[in-house]
Amino acid sequence: MKILRASLPIWLGVIAGTIVILALFFKQPTGIGTTANWFMQWNVILASFALTLGAGNVLRVHGNRIRLKSSNWGYSWVTVIGLTSYLLLGVIAGRTNTAYSWVFDNAYTPLSATVFSINAFYLSSACYRAFRARNGHAALLLISGVIVMLGSVGIGYAIWPGFTEIKTWIMNIPNSSAMRGMNIGAALGIMGVSLRVVMGLERGHLGGE
């Protein structure tokens, strides 16, 4: 049983990862290439199942809130009823059904768009109350940010055309080179973690036991 619980998931990861990496070296169709394609297509199907896990988790969390009558538990009914009814509608009638699309366009889309847009107000408040040029780093960040903001829009060009030129220079030279350095550093990190998973040394993604 311990082999099934602990070792099998690790070994499956090692085999799958190794075959996917090896397939990179075989340009013509081979057994390894074909197997790697199968594994990737299986992974896509497994990801479809994983999408449903989120819904289950939301139902579990809000179901517990209702059961335990936690704070604002009445609103959890809104989540549970909304989720269940929309899910049933989608599964039975399909995504392209008129009612499903109507709810998507007139409920989900405005809710999602507005929730994301509210960030702009918090950002504006943060710019006023929290962004302080306390030291050289902060001052440089703010100066760069202000120039990029003004250089990106028409009003900046109208005030002084130089803003646009400097903004383009900032994006192409300091930003691009510093971001390239960060991307290379991040790539080394990704390589390290991926190698650990493919070699079976990483167990964090499987949860503790």
Partner: peptide, 28 residues
């Protein structure tokens, strides 16, 4: 706000599950 926020969470999770279900049926 609380009502809208809770509904958003429910609809979002349901939509992801519906898309997962459709993808599974079509592809597998």
């Amino acid at each position: 706000y609380k009502f809208s926020e809770h509904l958003f969470v429910g609809l979002g999770a349901a939509h992801a599950a519906v898309m997962g279900w459709e993808a599974m049926v079509k592809q597998a």
